[in-house]
Design a protein around this nucleic acid. Sequence first.
DNA 1: ACCTGAACACCGTTCAAGT
DNA 2: ACCTGAACACCGTTCAAGT
Lengths: 180, 180
Amino acid sequence: MVNRTIQDWEDAALAAIAKDGLASLAIPRLARSLNVTKGSFYWHFASLQELIDKSLKRWEERDQTTLDELRRIADPRARLAALFEEAMEQREAHGLYVALSSSTVPHAAPVIRRISNSRLKFLIESYIEAGLKRTEARSRALLAYAAYIGALHLRLSKKKDTDDFVAHALKSLIPARGRS
Amino acid sequence: MVNRTIQDWEDAALAAIAKDGLASLAIPRLARSLNVTKGSFYWHFASLQELIDKSLKRWEERDQTTLDELRRIADPRARLAALFEEAMEQREAHGLYVALSSSTVPHAAPVIRRISNSRLKFLIESYIEAGLKRTEARSRALLAYAAYIGALHLRLSKKKDTDDFVAHALKSLIPARGRS
DNA sequence: ACCTGAACACCGTTCAAGT
DNA sequence: ACCTGAACACCGTTCAAGT
């Protein structure tokens, strides 16, 4: 079998974190899943922390890509609706956010903060485009983002609850059609 | 010095989790902070898991007490406002929720679910008392609770953001005075 | 260039032995 | 009844040695 690459280790790490949480991230386990010994790990990375750092970076880039794709939607109301739907539908992909947001791993906090700020900015800009004043847009964005994070953590189990949540969020958090 | 009690170990564990996260919970560290050796731990508990279980139970009881106190507020709108304020003000005490809600520790999920259900029920009942229909009360409670959880995770750092958040949540998530 | 295998410190758990 | 101290398996990290 061909040798393992840095990306192989990162992918295995992100998959393990999203699936079983950060605590499950063990070098011997990762090594076994890649059919090498744990000693091999230290040729690619200086430490477990470095693996985590690089995996976090990769995750951050993926989030940027998602937002950039959503930004292609011209109508701000439709864009907000698409963001809310994405938040509810891609719940598996958001396992990473849930697993890392409360972690005390060094360097996780800044990444979480950057992703939060990036998504908040996305919301504020969309609300302003939709006709809200800056302060009102900011307040509503905070509320909407908190609801978004909270919904991820709630892992709404019943499909009906999820549908209710999205419907209600769309209604009460997306402004009425342009008042301009 | 007198011998350690089960409660001493539980208190030390909850404090450690709230302060540095679940990963920091190590028996030797706890033992040192209590001035005993780690071997002593196993006279009180069968395993680390049992310590966690008992600590979770204790935490759950504390949450019930908080809700019961809030229930003494007769006016549902004032009660909802008090809950939202408590969520924002007691952020330190909620470090436990943040630290545990995304954990994959066995037995943590059921406790989180019971606490969530308990708080959701509290919200739904308050909204119904405030004049909303059952389905509308349920949808709004879901949104409000998601915002509540999300706000905890966001750890809104700036005081102004927190104030904005509470003001806006109160305005958009608490129904207008009784329509009956 | 990439991997193995042995070594060491640390944590979870057990248990015989102390008081 | 409560605690100590040694023991063992497992993980993070290092490093000399292999190919």
